[in-house]
Write a protein that binds this DNA or RNA. Structure first.
Lengths: 336, 336
DNA sequence: TTGTACGCGTTATCAC
DNA sequence: GTGATAACGCGTACAA
């Protein structure tokens, strides 16, 4: 049986109002003796406040919702994890919904969260979202709570957007590879349907062009961000015997490339240089360790929390933030 | 402004009761014409049910809560992710709390979830919990909802418990190594404060003894499950020049061992065999690929869901389940 | 076929 | 200092 304020009020022979005041630590009003008595009873009976009822009465949930494509993805798991820890410090609870990268689930998730009464919605949209922004925008617009987009955004969205700078990240990585005297470089591209692919390849192309390195259509290989696609494409790339380096659009494909290279008995980076993007935790543990681009989760969270705090105060607050990345020089890219 | 049933009732010129009936798809009562009219208005006004109010009225939340130590840990992220997907199919929402492996947060999490009104609590307790079971047990006992423990359990807990069989997993792995004619085997142990460490080392010792392989105290090396501890201890182990194999209590430490071995120019598994435990996703991608033990998440989830379904029906249902593991033979363990 | 009225647990306003 | 009581939005038994 659940203990309510009513039970405590009866036991203490006071009104519910008084119990409420005491349990919420409101100053004044009640005598110290009564305060103690009520608190004692609450403790003994193991009273726990019914958040649902409070929410109904106050129309305030002290809860924010977040929708991410996939918790099995370390990036999002880490994001959610930190967000929850930080928001807890602020007295907020975080509701998490995973969309499995399906628009349908994004939209259902929004409904689900809103129906539960959140004070703010954060979302990393599904990859396909950018192709169908209308639904999102109309849905988010007449939401009664502020919304922000993190990492995976929709350009047209008018609320706050926070993301990493793919263009400059890949740009400076490419620059670094070129600085190591590589001229013939293959680019292993990711899935072009994914939100963040375009920025990366453009960063690569811009850097190559800036340094007068020719890039032909056939120097771009189409992977899908998976280990397998890197593994499968290595032979095709390497056996051209024209490249001295391969830049992969993410670490997983770079692993695939390296794995096949080592399997073929090649020496890295002497026979060929390979780089990745994301700085996955294992990248440091490989032999050779992987040169890649890091996206600092702390920087992201700092901005996210700043924007959340502001949005909670002013629901119409809006800001577009692009976060810088760091080039991580390790041993998989060599100088020639 | 939020749309409520009242708004719809006014617009349709009927009572709130009628609107409620229609929106909850209750059979009979209302005329088809009125049904359509009400649904249309709800759609136009973008009505979304106030779950908070419903919960207060029905005392049913269609929500379960889960507490895990850490979402950045793939195992738990995967667990939560699948649980959420499966429970969604059942019309349930999953509230997630991370404890950061601190008892304090476990207990606070329980309070937090209960105050929000969950129909069931699932928890993977903090590692230190087994040392202080009293608090948990008293807290969970007079909880008004059923509770189950997953993976990280407290032995004394009387509700349902579901976990993997560490003993038999490590036992058969050791057996396999011995079958490959290894006799002098070093064991790289994990943190003994962690819930699942004991079972693993016991499985190793039992198998060694069963095959008449001597194990001395100094053949057990104390790691802490981290890559670094494996990396740091490799030299100490290898330079004994007595071992032909090292069994690590998890994959991360095995990575550390392998990394240092390769750095020293050794050939695996010719110079020394190494095995892990957990079958982390990257274990397949290493050179050589890592022989390890897999804990099938699908099997775990099947059992978890079965128990949840039963517990939701009968709050006093209780079962103690131990799930089998699979030996994954790859290339890091060689025959001698 | 539809409406009335009450309860869910809490907060907040006002009265005493 | 303390108590009554009206919201909050919804579900439901009982009337009509």
């Amino acid at each position: 049986m659940k203990i309510t304020m009513k039970d405590i009020a009866e036991e203490a022979k006071v009104s519910i109002a008084t119990v409420s005041h005491v349990l919420n630590n409101k100053p004044g009003r009640v005598s110290d003796a009564m305060r103690e008595k009520i608190k004692k009873i609450a403790r003994e009976k193991k009273y726990v406040t019914n958040h649902t009822a409070r929410q109904l009465a106050t129309n305030k949930s002290n809860t924010i919702g977040i929708i991410v494509p996939d918790l099995e993805n370390y990036f999002f798991a880490s994001m959610v994890s930190r967000l929850q820890a930080k928001m807890r410090e602020r007295g907020y609870f975080v509701l998490v919904v995973t969309s499995n990268d399906e628009i349908r689930n994004d939209l259902e998730g929004i409904r689900l969260l809103v129906s539960r009464g959140i004070d703010l919605l954060a979302i990393s949209v599904s990859n396909a979202a950018q192709n169908h922004p209308e639904e999102y925008l109309s849905m988010l617009e007449d939401l009664s709570v502020p919304a922000i987009m993190i990492d995976r955004i929709i350009k047209e969205f008018k609320g706050s957007k926070i993301r990493f700078d793919d263009f400059s990240g890949m740009n400076k990585l490419t620059e670094y590879v070129i600085d190591n005297h590589h001229r013939k470089i293959a680019f292993l591209n990711g899935d072009m349907n994914m939100a963040r692919t375009a920025g990366r390849i453009q960063g690569f192309l811009a850097s190559m062009e800036a340094h007068g390195c020719a890039v032909d259509q056939k120097d771009i290989y189409d992977g899908d961000y998976s280990f397998e696609s890197g593994y499968a494409l290595f032979d095709a790339i390497y056996d051209q015997h024209t490249y001295t380096a391969i830049i992969a659009a993410n670490d997983m494909m770079a692993y695939g490339l390296m794995n096949r290279a080592i399997e073929r008995g090649l020496t890295l980076p002497d026979d060929i240089s390979i780089s990745g993007y994301d700085n996955v935790i294992f990248s440091e543990m490989l032999n050779p360790s992987l040169t890649t681009v890091n996206q600092d989760m702390n920087s992201l969270m700092d901005e996210v929390l700043r924007v959340i705090d502001l949005s909670l105060k002013d629901p119409h607050y809006s800001e577009n933030i692009i976060i810088d990345t760091q080039l991580i020089k390790r041993n998989s890219v060599g100088s020639i």
